[in-house]
Design a protein around this nucleic acid. Structure first.
Lengths: 353, 353
DNA sequence: CTAGGCAGCCAAAACGATTTGGGCCAGGTT
DNA sequence: AACCTGGCCCAAATCGTTTTGGCTGCCTAG
């Protein structure tokens, strides 16, 4: 068996070798048309012997589909790109999305925001996009809409009522989860609960803040709301803590803090510890997204686990359905996100020192 | 400006609209051929008005290049895929690789091992592969070699001398770093140093073990070597610790442990703590790969930071160079990986013994 | 005045698959 | 005997680019 010319075999080579037309070869593999079993067998063995693999790109050209979807990682262009995946949420999301994509027969491409100047052309090769946490007036959303490229969002596009939009949406349950976190803090004894949000104008930050405001009014609790840039990491949390502790807010020093970003929660814990405040005795903390580091910190920190794996799975399935013009999958309305109670908000048990 | 037929404009539409041939349009954008500046201008505005974007797939078909490279995530098929990215190393690697790819004008695709049964065809669409930590007789390596698909490995292909292979290799410095970790443990006072490796047969595990053996002989220290499956996570570390502490090894109970996998190190720390052994006073610990959780654990754990971001960057650059038939980039021989000393191996302050 | 060169443009042939619209033949119906 | 019906197969068109190999004129050197 002489290695045929070094280039990889095409459908034509297979056809010649099997003594049939390319049409027949194509039909054999695609299942279209009618091909006698005997012929099929001949084609298959010929293909196998030649080591034939259909050229995905040529298929893509005809079908206008490549079998690749893109996950947009907006922070990719940020200052310290190597830290991108420090955000556990996104890392978990990406991992689960890759797995789910594979299950749908799709590849998952990580791309930076393609609206940016450095937009790699390759990004546009994908059949569809998953946009997590779109922000107000998101240029990416606008671009995809204009270009007619299918996409789904995880979290609402702020300012766009989901009913009026036909963009598939994966619900991140920001309302329910905010209430869940606040109620939990309340039940664990906190009476002056502050909220620390990030500064990205996405559903998570915006909705949490508004729900918090309403919740505080309901509890007749003067709201204490601080914003810290996500990018500041721990330091952002530390500064937020300083603001809350030093700034003589109406309500006085908080005894409970709900920090939406996990690294902020860590920074807050650090600052509280420095000041000799005990967690959870003096101040209870809940983080709004889960991370490995919350599980291993000195005082473990309670958190809202958004279940990025499940969200990713749903996003991929929704996108795959849309790409195939199938109706969107119905995930029922069972809650997804959950509260993980750890030391930072655990009521003391009777016998503890 | 009536929206032309809903399908996206092709190069032909642009040509017609600008009153030139498709060749001229192509040349205008590619810079090939000769096109009068005035004509170029006409073409460009026509393209812009139509909202024309070249079809990446069609370009790919001609050029046999799509501008996408694949990163193989072997653990993707594992039992708990959502935990894939718990392995900080890979998460960081993927993030940095995505960024570096973008800089090279390439997209990064996450694919599971394409040798598996579920191999998504899309995986094969990529121009090249990055294989991290290939194992002995790696089927993926074999497949890529046979198919003539370009790839680079991060870490040697065990059993294949790098000089004899023309597969670009990113050096993970397993020899130097193992020695670095062991010397550090020694200097911090440990005299009976055990090694806990994973069970994957990759360079990191294999080379570390062999270097450890030699190092132990040199120090006239009876070696204590335990293997625990990476997949067991903390539990694997716990079991390894049990083996080391209970099994009456020749050398007795170790006072220093080098655990290659970060989660193993965490498990070891937990088991030691349970038994009332103090870290680092009774036992010093160093982990062989860095992770966020080592930085925040009760007793922070020293680690070897492989600098996955830098490794990823190099891998991408090497692959990009190979794809362009450029000579491989020369990264000099400055060391990359480093030791991060934390509490688990910090020598006691002066007043201690 | 002519040959050659060059700038500017184009038609047509790839690239590797899928799909369309027959053709041919055997067997069953009128 | 003529007609229809399927089963099986094929040639050619198609997808949207890039590249090859001309074809025009115009300019300049001889």
């Amino acid at each position: 068996m002489p290695p045929p010319p070094s280039r990889r075999p095409t459908i034509r080579d297979v056809a010649r070798s099997a003594g049939v037309s390319v049409t027949t070869v194509s039909h054999t593999f695609s299942g279209n048309g009618k091909v006698a079993p005997a012929t099929q067998q001949r084609v298959r063995t010929a293909a196998h012997d030649l080591g034939y693999r259909p050229d995905v790109i040529a298929q893509g050209l005809r079908s206008n589909r490549l079998g690749v979807i893109a996950l947009v990682a907006r922070q990719l262009d940020a200052l310290r790109p190597e830290l991108l995946f420090d955000v556990d949420y996104f890392a978990r999301f990406a991992g689960a999305a890759a797995v789910a994509s594979l299950a749908e027969g799709l590849g998952l491409m990580l791309v930076s925001d393609p609206t940016g100047p450095r937009a790699a052309g390759a990004a546009l090769a994908s059949d569809g996009f998953i946009v997590t946490e779109p922000v107000v007036d998101d240029p990416l959303v606008e671009m995809l809409t204009n270009a007619g490229i299918p996409f789904v969002t995880v979290g609402e596009i702020p300012g766009v009522a989901p009913e009026t939009s036909d963009v598939p949406l994966v619900d991140i349950e920001s309302g329910r989860l905010t209430t869940l976190a606040l109620d939990h803090l309340w039940e664990s004894g906190a009476r002056r609960i502050a909220l620390v949000t990030g500064t990205d104008r996405n559903e998570w930050n915006l909705r949490s803040a508004s729900v918090y405001q309403r919740w505080a009014r309901f509890r007749r609790m003067p709201p204490a709301l601080v914003h810290a840039p996500e990018a500041l990491d721990d330091e952002g949390g530390r500064r937020a803590a300083i603001t809350l502790l030093d700034g003589s807010d109406a309500g006085g020093v908080p005894d409970g803090i709900y920090a939406l970003t996990s690294n902020h929660a860590l920074g807050i814990l650090a600052e509280l510890t420095v000041r000799g405040l005990r967690v959870p005795d003096d101040v209870r903390i809940v983080a709004g997204s889960d991370a490995e580091s919350l599980r291993t910190s000195q005082t473990t920190i309670s958190s809202i686990d958004l279940r990025p794996d499940e969200l990713a799975r749903r996003a991929v399935q929704a996108l795959a359905a849309r790409l195939d013009d199938r109706p969107p999958p119905d995930h029922g309305d069972a809650p997804v996100g959950r509260l993980l109670v750890r030391a930072s908000s655990r009521p003391r048990s009777p016998d503890q020192r």
